Simulated scan of single mutants.
Amino acid sequence: MTAMPTIVFIHGLWLHATSWDPWQEFFTAAGYDTVAPEWPGTPDTVAEARANPDSIADHGIDAVTEHYLSFLDGLGEPPILIGHSFGGMIAQKILGLGRAAAVVAVDAAQIKGVLPLPLSALHATLPVFKNPANIRRAVSLTAEQFRYGFGNAISEEESAGLYDRWTIPAPGRPLFEAAAANFSLHSPAAVDTGNTSRGPLLLIAGGKDHTVPEVITEATAKQYRHSPAVTELVAFPDRGHSLTIDNGWREVAQTSLDWLHAQGL
Score class of each variant (00 low, 15 high):
R99L: 09
R99T: 09
A101G: 06
A101L: 08
A102N: 05
A102P: 03
V103C: 07
V103D: 03
V104F: 02
A105M: 04
V106A: 09
Q110W: 10
Q110S: 12
K112L: 09
V114R: 02
L115R: 14
L117D: 12
L119K: 14
L119S: 14
H123T: 15
H123I: 15
H123S: 08
A124H: 02
A124C: 02
A124P: 06
L126W: 13
P127S: 08
V128L: 02
N131T: 14
P132F: 12
P132M: 12
I135C: 09
R136L: 12
R137N: 15
R137K: 15
V139L: 06
T142H: 05
E144A: 15
Q145V: 05
Q145L: 10
Q145P: 03
F146D: 06
R147Q: 14
Y148N: 02
Y148K: 07
Y148H: 10
Y148F: 15
Y148C: 03
G149C: 07
F150H: 10
F150K: 07
G151Y: 09
N152W: 08
A153L: 06
S155M: 01
S155R: 02
S155Q: 01
E156V: 09
E156R: 13
S159C: 09
S159T: 09
G161T: 02
L162R: 04
L162V: 13
L162G: 06
Y163S: 00
Y163V: 03
Y163A: 01
D164C: 03
D164M: 08
D164S: 11
W166K: 01
W166H: 13
I168D: 02
G172M: 06
R173Y: 01
R173G: 09
L175G: 07
A179V: 07
A179H: 07
A181G: 06
N182K: 05
F183N: 04
S184R: 14
S184D: 11
S184Q: 14
L185T: 09
L185K: 10
L185I: 11
H186T: 13
H186P: 00
S187M: 08
S187L: 10
A189D: 05
A189S: 13
V191C: 04
T196W: 00
S197A: 14
R198M: 11
L201M: 02
L201Q: 04
L202A: 06
L203F: 01
L203E: 01
T211R: 01
T211W: 00
V212L: 05
P213T: 12
V215S: 13
V215T: 15
V215D: 06
A219T: 03
A219Y: 00
T220F: 00
A221V: 07
K222Q: 13
Y224R: 03
R225E: 10
H226P: 00
S227Y: 06
S227V: 09
V230T: 15
V230A: 06
T231S: 13
E232K: 10
E232R: 12
E232M: 06
L233D: 02
V234A: 05
F236C: 04
P237C: 08
D238W: 05
D238T: 13
R239K: 12
G240D: 12
G240E: 02
S242W: 00
L243A: 06
I245F: 11
I245K: 04
I245S: 14
I245G: 10
